[in-house]
Design a protein around this nucleic acid. Structure first.
Length: 633
RNA sequence: GGACCGGUAGCUCAGCUGGAUAGAGCAGCUGCCUUCUAAGCAGCAGGUCAUUGGUUCGAAUCCAAUCCGGUUCACCA
């Protein structure tokens, strides 16, 4: 049990014995004591004052002396200042904790046997390579899975690959038109980038073809459009021309955008792509074989990237296999009157009672929509793995979608419904705003990883500390540091918040960064390497401790509670902030006090234990963030 | 327009289940390598916690209103 929980329990018990009042331990507010006061943990007394009819000072005195008397092993002193009871943990308790845990490689882990959790993350499209936003997703997903593992959960990591649809056909069309049979092998371009390049070529061609159609439409010439679009176009064109210089300029812009959308769909290339999608759905052999071929290029590219950044999956779903799921559930929902049918045959759910809107679940032509596939996949996952919880790591632009998904699943009575949790994360933006592929500001994942490794190389060479490393060892070290810096940078902020990435200022290696923590680990390992074995002298038991030794030990003790908190809140940044603080405390300690030349042999042994435990905690904490720590750097 | 999210130091972020004088890192300025790795340490400076009102012993934290920014409300995925 953590110290904080022990304090809460002890306080509740003390209040019962002193005043005969029963309190739940959770209601006791325990904080870390502010540095300007003496003590380690502080009980805030105001909450009990009224109930116990005591002044805060009197209560603090009585409680403090009682706790110290009853729990001499835990507390060695107390003081009361303005309604705060500051408790001093005993040196014995701190040193016993360190001695007891420094050889425990599983310190921080909870017992196994917690419920099974599925984590779906990464979920790429096969028409484009991964970018910075995907990196945040991948790092978050991997980390939250690992954190849950360490808090005792069985984990199934999954990925749903969006491998079909109009966007894939776009790349295919462009390849047919422009590639002349070129392949990743023949060009030496990584497969996902190769296919992505053709997607861009398609978009360029589409834009070129759409422009004259838009211009004509704006001028009232609709000859490129099909008859069914004409009424709508006429209306839009009217809005645009009458409002573009008037007070309702926004309406004009919106009208223009809709005209553009219609024009894009009226282009010959777009029609080709749409035709190809139909062929694909019919199972046309040439289309399918091209599709398989191009996707295989993409997968080879993704595999390389995943390998590099450490993403892995226990089960991969492909949308080409799952996009028809959910159809039975529509029938079921209709039978249960969860859904209703409109006159045109389309099927809907009314969520207005839940504060949302009506949502379509099946088109009038009988095909299912995105959300229907997701409901079907949720059911499929439940049948296959029966996890109690299902976490979806998906950007916050889909908050509404997941709210709807969970509601529908609940209304359908799917067993997995209550376990659906959308781990929503904010977009990664540039100082200039969102990344836009049209403006070429998308930060490519492979490029960024390569840049980080190159910077790690440059900095390492400047410092010149590892000249005896082999080329293989150096390469590994650069990757550990470069990718570590990148992962830490993306994981150290609250997932829910959008974050700014400035490509001009490259990711730091000093301060609140991965490399600083890795460096702290390497320094500890360097000391431990030079020492004989740590001998667990009984003499470490009654040592008076210095403030920094106490601070460090107390901070290390909090590690299991931090992992629990990170798991509960689905927030790896809690771990990142914690491990940075531990590293900072150790660095201060390291600068102030010598370990190898400690005042006494017992002190030296204790400090070695403390250092070993610190390294252990750093390693484990960084591991759950997906970051390796080097022995030397 | 409805719903949701955010606004804390020059910049990037903690702190938000109410608790002491609001914390880090970066950038700026001072010091510190003949002793365990200076990717480090110690210090200085930097704040109307968007604004206004409310709740209370106590508000960055809770409530209301306002301002600013974002996302979303497709027979797209």
């Amino acid at each position: 049990m953590s110290v904080v929980l022990q304090i809460k329990a002890a306080t509740a018990k003390a209040i019962e014995q002193l005043y005969g009042v029963n309190l739940a331990p959770e209601t006791v507010l325990v904080n870390a004591t502010k540095t300007e006061f003496e003590g380690d943990y502080t009980i805030v007394l105001f909450a009990f004052v009224k109930q116990l009819k005591k002044s805060p000072d009197a209560l603090g005195e009585e409680l403090g002396s009682f706790l110290v008397k009853e729990q001499p092993h835990l507390f060695s002193g107390y003081n009361v200042i303005k309604g705060f009871l500051n408790l001093v943990l005993s040196d014995d308790f701190c040193s016993a904790f360190v001695s007891g845990q420094y050889q425990n490689p599983k310190f921080g882990f909870a017992e196994e046997g917690q419920e099974k959790v599925m984590v779906e993350y990464s979920s790429p499209n096969t028409n484009k390579p991964l970018h910075l936003g995907h990196l945040r997703n991948n790092f978050l997903g991997w980390s939250i899975a690992e954190i849950l593992k360490h808090t005792g959960h069985e984990i199934v990591k999954t990925c749903i690959v969006n491998d079909r649809g109009i966007h894939i056909c776009k790349s295919m069309i462009a390849w047919q038109r422009y590639a002349n049979g070129a392949t990743p092998e023949s060009t030496g371009i990584k497969g996902d980038h190769f296919v992505g390049d053709y997607y861009v070529k398609f978009e360029n061609e589409l834009k070129a073809q759409a422009e004259p159609i838009i211009d004509a439409a704006v001028a009232g010439d609709f000859s490129s459009f099909e008859a069914k679009d004409l009424p709508k176009l006429t209306a839009l064109q009217k809005v645009y021309t009458t409002e573009k210089d008037g007070p309702k300029k926004e309406a004009a812009i919106k009208a223009y955008e809709e005209i553009r959308e219609l024009a894009r769909n009226a282009t010959p290339v777009m029609k080709e792509a749409q035709h190809m999608l139909l062929q694909w759905e019919k199972g046309d052999e040439t289309v399918i074989s091209l599709w398989q071929r191009m996707n295989s290029w993409v997968y080879a590219g993704f595999d390389e990237t995943y390998q590099k950044i450490g993403s892995d999956f226990d089960k991969v779903y492909y949308e080409s296999n799952t996009y028809l799921l959910g159809k039975d559930l529509v029938e079921e929902g209709l039978a249960k009157h969860v859904f209703f049918q409109k006159e045109d045959g389309s099927v809907w759910i009314d969520l207005t009672a839940d504060g949302l809107d009506e949502k379509i679940v099946r088109r009038k032509d009988g095909t299912s929509v995105y959300i229907t596939q997701d409901i079907g996949l949720a059911e499929q996952k439940q049948k296959e793995f029966n996890a109690a919880q299902s976490i979806y790591v998906v950007g916050d632009e889909q908050n509404y979608h997941f709210k709807v998904l969970k509601l529908i699943c609940q209304k359908l009575g799917l067993p997995s419904a209550d376990g659906i949790f959308h781990l929503s994360y904010g977009m990664v933006e540039l100082p200039s705003g969102k990344m836009k592929s049209r403006e070429g500001t998308v930060v490519d994942a492979d490029d960024l990883v390569a840049d980080m490794i190159a910077i790690a190389r440059q900095k390492t060479e400047e410092l010149g500390k590892v000249k005896d490393f082999t080329e293989t060892e150096l390469q590994e070290l650069y990757e550990i540091i470069g990718i570590g810096a990148l992962k830490f940078f993306l994981l150290r902020v609250d997932p829910k918040k959008k974050m700014i990435f400035n490509p001009e200022e490259s990711i730091e290696f000093n301060g609140f960064t991965g490399p600083f923590i890795q460096y702290t680990h390497a320094r500890i390992k360097s000391i431990l390497r030079k020492q004989e074995q740590i001998t667990d002298l009984a003499g470490t038991a009654n040592l008076p401790l210095l403030p920094l030794e106490r601070t460090l030990a107390i901070e290390l003790e909090q590690f299991p509670a931090i992992l629990e908190e990170a798991a509960r809140e689905h927030d790896p940044s809690k771990v990142a902030i914690y491990v940075f603080n531990v590293s900072k405390t150790f660095s201060s300690f390291y600068a102030e006090h010598s370990i190898a030349n400690a005042e006494s042999e017992a002190k030296k042994q204790f400090r070695l234990q403390l250092a070993a435990l610190t390294a252990q905690v750093i390693k484990t904490a960084m591991h759950v963030l997906g970051i390796r720590v080097p022995e030397r750097m």
